[in-house]
Nucleic acid binder design. Structure first.
Length: 299
DNA sequence: AGGCAGGTGGCCA
DNA sequence: TGGCCACCTGCC
């Protein structure tokens, strides 16, 4: 990784100090698929941005290419959730009567929900069906490399895992499905292709959807091919700040079955239980349960 | 070496 | 409404 042209490290001026493990869980725990670490330095891409994060002398620091330094300084805090008071949010979760949630909260201090670009979050989770995080990251990196613009004009600046932005939805609409399949997307290529065509035919649809309340936004998203309950909830939680969204994937299904005695419950039933039990911040609770369950492999 | 993976949609009773 | 299964393909 060439580092000659990065700006100097800046202190991350937000009230957040996760351990290296929790930082990894935030950036690479299944919310986002565009971060990778190299010798303790995390490099991540979103929208037209690329940034690096690291922990030095006990404090988090960041840097970006000079050409986008000001923009990243403005947008990185929001991306990392700095608009919200996370200690207060976590404190308001119904954990006092919930020993397992208490245990999960204690295990991941500093775990947050990222606020990612809506359209990119949709693309990421359209790729996620029956795929592990590493593979989703590979698909998106390939898609970016083949069909996205270089993130900076100087190609020597950012090398390695990925140096290109994700293609926008208008760009995706112009890509034949066969070319998408060449990016290891498999059967997801058809969903992405059809979604891209739909969005191209409905300008403003995505932005309007992002601004709707949770229930209406979810119903709209589920009109898209390849978007069911789970993907819609992920997009709204990680890409629109809808903290009441409660995505039920296999890990959350296992978590609720095992820790809340919901053996045999269907995903839709578990989702309803989650929203009722964990309340308006169910998505936050979900992320802690998810991280715990994935780390403990069902034990 | 194969089964399986952070689902969805379509088809059938 | 509820259950089953095909869909692609590369990791563990």
């Amino acid at each position: 990784m060439s580092t000659a042209s990065w700006s100097i490290w800046q202190p991350l001026d937000i009230d957040w100090a996760p351990s290296p493990e929790v930082l990894a869980e935030n950036l690479d725990g299944g919310q986002a698929f565009r971060w990778h670490s190299d010798n303790g330095v995390w490099t991540g891409l979103w929208s037209e941005n690329v940034a690096q994060l690291c922990l030095r002398d006990g404090a988090h620091q960041w840097r970006a290419p000079p050409s986008m330094h000001a923009r990243v300084a403005r947008e990185l805090p929001r991306y990392l959730g700095a608009d919200l008071d996370w200690p207060a949010l976590v404190d308001s979760l119904p954990s006092r009567s919930d020993p397992h949630l208490t245990r999960c909260l204690a295990a991941y201090p500093g775990l947050r929900i990222l606020r990612q670009p809506f359209g990119e979050t949709l693309l990421g989770f359209l790729c996620s069906a029956t795929k592990q995080i590493v593979q989703i990251k590979q698909m998106l990196a390939l898609l970016a490399k083949q069909h996205g613009l270089p993130v900076v004009s100087d190609s020597s600046l950012v090398t390695g895992y990925s140096s290109h932005r994700l293609p926008t939805w208008p760009a995706l609409a112009a890509i034949p499905e066969a070319d998408l399949r060449a990016c290891q997307l498999g059967f997801r290529a058809r969903f992405i292709h059809q979604t891209a065509l739909f969005l191209a035919a409905h300008p403003g649809w995505l932005t309007e959807t992002e601004q709707l309340p949770y229930t209406a936004a979810k119903a709209r998203l589920m009109e898209l091919p390849g978007v069911g309950e789970k993907v819609a909830d992920c997009v709204l939680l990680f890409g629109a700040g809808k903290l009441e969204a409660f995505p039920v994937d296999t890990w959350v299904l296992k978590s609720l079955a095992r820790r809340y005695d919901l053996v045999g419950w269907k995903p839709a039933q578990v989702a309803q239980f989650g929203r009722a039990h964990f309340g308006p911040l169910a998505g936050v609770a979900q992320q802690f349960l998810f991280s715990w369950e994935r780390a403990h492999g069902g034990r």
